[in-house]
């Protein structure tokens, strides 16, 4: 197994996440899909670290940042969705359209 195999897995994971993020109606499912995308980026960083720059610290820091970001986004996202649920009684992204556009 070399770098290319890992990159293929990460690009597939990223696009599966992107597919979910753009097509899912349920707002929480959108967040789940975005988590997949972030995981793909982290996998990329660690693959590059392992095969290209094993002595570099940068990709590991980026992965830590990515994981922090995922946690922060989960917290804020769920609060935003809870707020929506209270106001609209639904979390279907397609049904929430007071703002024209």
């Amino acid at each position: 197994m070399n770098l290319s195999d890992f990159l293929v897995v990460s690009s597939l994971l990223f696009m599966i996440g992107a597919y979910g993020a753009f097509t899912r109606k349920n707002a929480i499912a959108v967040i789940l899909s975005i988590e997949l995308m972030l995981n793909a980026a982290n996998l990329n960083f660690l693959s590059f670290w392992r095969f290209l720059h094993p002595s570099s610290m940068e990709p590991q820091i980026f992965v830590l940042v990515g994981i922090t970001l995922a946690a922060a986004e989960a917290a804020v996202g769920l609060a935003v969705i809870l707020n929506i649920y209270r106001d609209f009684g639904t979390i279907n992204v397609d049904e929430i359209s007071l703002l024209k556009g």
Binding site: G17, A18, A21, A27, I34, I84, I96
Partner: peptide, 18 residues
């Protein structure tokens, strides 16, 4: 409207950051 705006910005912003 404010809640809806937050949801829209969050979804698109989170995708953009990923």
């Amino acid at each position: 409207r404010s809640a809806e705006a937050a949801l829209k910005m969050f979804v698109i912003g989170a995708i953009a950051s990923a």
